[in-house]
Amino acid sequence: MVVLEELTKKEDLFVSGHGLCPGCGIPIILKLVLRATTHPIVIVNATGCLQISSTRFPLTSWKLNWIHSSSGNAASTISGIETMYKVLKKKGKLQTDTEIKFLAIVGDGGTNDIGFSSLSGAIERGHDFVYLCYDNQSYANSGGQCSSASPIGTSTSTTPTGKILPGKLQYRKDITRIIAAHKLPYVAQAAPWNWEDLYTKAGKAFNIEGPAYLNVLNPCPKTWGIPSDKSIELTRIAADTCIWPLYEIDGDNNIKLNYKPENKLPVTEWLKKQDRFEHLLNIENKWIVDEIQNEVDKNWNRLIYNEKKGINN
């Protein structure tokens, strides 16, 4: 059991004065993740909302070592840093006795799309790092274009709803499941509404040796079309509709569902609160809502079945 009061006493390593939008979920996720280890952390941050909003020269919101190299190479950049750390450790040339932790922070575009092979390669090589994907389901930094994490039916600036098209026509990649297929020591899906769950998972990810992957739903008021005060609530609805199940998979392939809603809500509860899905509630798009509901149900049932049987994917 984590006591929030204790967390308030820990130092902020990502400080105020950043330029992220009102109601953005990223700093909330960071507040919890950066507190989940007592070790020093070195961060590689891919191009995206967080990177541009937190490092506008000569300002920086980071109180720890932070490096940006590009949008698609955070995992390979961190591979180099972690390898060099091991070399210095082996040669006895490290300036500190404290174990350093490595954290890559990347949005869904840099994870699902342009940085996908970089991430897959780094996991295959078994580098000891935590990869945090803040998944707001679009390229929010460049204005909300479609990414392969954007769900079917989403209206984005590159899959706009028009007279004949109802938004994005493809399903999103289930990136957590794809990463889990790499059989790495730890994979988890989390969301900021359940801060305790997110904090605990980040702690596990840091403690485990080898690669760990965290996929965290990140509410984006701007691209989702929600009031800024509703961003945490939306992530809660995502869990209650089973759109975004909270679960984790360990190195022995044991899958654990961390939250099972007492009353599973229909997906329309999730869709109707966001401008990006508004058009789906029109009668001619009912088939898309039915498909979404069908997929969500199948996925949820699969997770429950796999948890019972001890199957990973």
Binding site: S69, N73, S79, G80, I81
Partner: peptide
């Protein structure tokens, strides 16, 4: 020396950036 087999030339250069920015 540590020898790393990476998954693309783009990642190779990115990994070099990681090593060199760590003083290596």
């Amino acid at each position: 020396s540590e020898f790393l087999n990476v998954e693309s030339d783009y990642s190779a250069m990115s990994t070099c950036i990681g090593v060199a920015s760590s003083g290596g």
